[in-house]
Amino acid sequence: MCQPAGAGPPGSSAGQQDVEASGSSSSSAPSPHYRDPDIKLPAQYELKLHTETRKQNELLDQIHVGLGDLLNGAKQIGEEIGTQTRALDKVQNRAENTTGRIHEMNNKSQLRDFKVDKDKNP
């Protein structure tokens, strides 16, 4: 993209020279960096440009809808994972409680001290 001679980035001294050279420093004057192009396209190219722009907009709309669907699917997957995590936590807590009760019952059992002597035969 070409810039007019003397035009630099916004805020540069080259851009200020263009504004000062034009004799107006009021805010109503267009910025030297954002001028409308002086080139007018022929009608056949204008139609092609509008057609291509419309096609691109339709494709972008389809992409937007697809990304929205993808986002909704991701949210549903996240909710399902959260539900399954809560269910697994409940199962894990119950398993830990059951394991603790089994150990407690084994410790209280009368059979814990029962040993079979292999050397003694009744």
Rank of each mutant, 00 (worst) to 15 (best):
I39D: 09
Q16C: 13
L49C: 02
D18V: 09
A29R: 10
A14Y: 05
Q44H: 14
Q17Y: 07
L49R: 00
S25R: 12
E46F: 03
S31E: 04
S13N: 14
E46M: 09
A14G: 08
Y34N: 10
Q16A: 08
L41F: 03
Y34A: 12
R35A: 14
L47E: 11
S22V: 00
G15T: 09
A21Q: 13
S31Y: 01
L41E: 00
S24M: 04
S25D: 15
P30H: 02
L41H: 00
E20I: 14
D38G: 13
K48Q: 09
V19K: 13
V19C: 15
P37Q: 09
L47P: 03
Q17P: 00
S22A: 15
H33W: 06
E20T: 13
P37G: 13
A14R: 07
H33Y: 12
Y45S: 00
P37A: 05
S26W: 04
S13K: 15
E20M: 12
A43H: 10
S26M: 13
Q16F: 06
S28G: 03
P32S: 08
S13D: 15
E20S: 15
K48D: 03
Q16I: 10
K40D: 05
S31C: 07
P30E: 03
P42A: 01
Y34D: 11
P42R: 02
P42V: 00
S13A: 13
K48R: 13
P32W: 07
R35M: 13
Y45R: 01
L41C: 06
Y34W: 14
P37E: 07
K40H: 14
P42C: 03
V19E: 04
S25P: 01
S27Y: 09
Y45D: 01
G15A: 10
D36R: 11
S13V: 08
D38I: 05
S13Q: 11
A43E: 12
G23R: 06
D38E: 15
S26A: 15
P30Q: 04
S27R: 12
D36F: 08
R35H: 06
L49I: 02
I39N: 10
Q44W: 06
V19F: 04
